[in-house]
Design a protein around this nucleic acid. Structure first.
Lengths: 215, 215
DNA sequence: GTCTATAGGGAGATAGAC
DNA sequence: GTCTATCTCCCTATAGAC
């Protein structure tokens, strides 16, 4: 085994990475549109412009493929939402958090739907992931909020329920967008709809938490 | 054709009604547990203690069966949540509405999950139903809220977004209960968890809507 | 790495005896 | 109305030539 890769190997690795990305991006779209169980590897192959056997070459089974898609989504999420910054206080942090979550609903609707489908179906892969990462994530945010409560910048709140509510309110614009479109009587949502959602959700959360700070 | 039914017909009608109810109740449970596409008519038949052919005798196709299940869920929902009563004012009405929605999440978890699965999968049957009934329902509630706003019992609110948020927050305890259980670190939710949810959601909604009234 | 052809396994649905 | 046996179709996954 030599440390320096030969050009041939580099080319192969490049092709591999390119095809895997193509397959994962296509899968996310098809899974979101068709549902996890209804999606066939043939549909994914067709939409990616590949023969079905190639999809199975890169991902041995449909289950492996779904898990790769979910892992990609969960990684992306962890890195796309800012963590709380205790010095900035609750108002700025909660406002930014809600805004970023709504942006996610708008910009990564397919990823959000696939995640929701996997969660509602209680896919073990997703539950394990949440158990490993979400709980520790939440305990950090809980500590930050308790600091703010002690500084009397906001009222005491049930932190778990607060996050459950924020996630529910923001994700619903992606996961159940069909229902949202019917209620707003629009063919598809515009920038102003997402802005109104941000403003109203922020208003409820800040008022409900009794955020005192003016700025 | 005689107007008076013969005993034989009554018996047949009774057997029919009984079997249909058994099949629908079983289906709701299995659909919720397995997902709509993964559920097989064989699973439903086994769990109902019937041969598969009997399921197909009462519901020609799996699609017909799912639609019958969904219709039953939607009918139940329409009759289980109180309408707004304008004289009672926003505080009592919103508090009761949220409480009833959380009770639904707790008591009809399977129904809620099946509905969520159908909605996220954009089943045409569900979308049509929502288009026909939800929009008119919402416009009545919108009028009531505008009355309260004019009487200065609460601040002006974007009514559509308010209902989207309330539904999202309350339904999430049924639809994504796996996530909720992980966050609360409990094997299953107890009465106190649902009560805390009710109190906190109500607090956010009343504060966010600037409900003035004290009682 | 790519692709055709096919094995192997179920699922939905129904025929037809009881 | 009930139930067994079966038809038909299509999906996942792989073998094997290129």
């Amino acid at each position: 085994m030599s440390d320096a890769k030969r050009p041939k190997d580099q080319l192969k690795a490049h092709i591999r990475a390119q095809n895997q990305t193509l397959i994962l991006e296509t899968s996310e779209r098809v899974f979101a549109r068709q549902g996890l169980a209804k999606t066939t590897t043939q549909m994914i192959a067709d939409e990616a412009g590949l023969p079905k056997a190639n999809v199975h070459y890169y991902y041995r089974s449909k289950k492996d493929l779904l898990e790769a898609v979910l892992e990609r989504i969960l990684e992306m999420w962890l890195h796309s939402v800012s963590e709380f910054n205790v010095e900035e206080g609750p108002k700025r942090n909660l406002t930014r958090y809600i805004s970023e979550k709504i942006d996610q609903s708008r910009d990564n609707k397919n990823a959000s739907k696939v995640f929701a489908m996997a969660l509602i179906g209680e896919e073990p892969f997703v539950l394990d992931y949440l158990r490993r990462l979400f709980v520790s994530e939440l305990s950090r945010e809980k500590a930050t909020i308790e600091t703010w409560v002690n500084e009397e910048l906001m009222d005491p709140v049930p932190v778990e329920h607060l996050f459950i509510s924020i996630w529910a309110m923001t994700q619903t614009y992606a996961d159940f967008d069909a229902q949202v479109r019917i209620m707003l009587q629009k063919e598809c949502l515009g920038e102003s709809d997402y802005d109104e959602a941000k403003v109203f959700i922020t208003r409820m959360v800040l008022a409900g938490c009794g955020v005192k700070e003016l700025l």
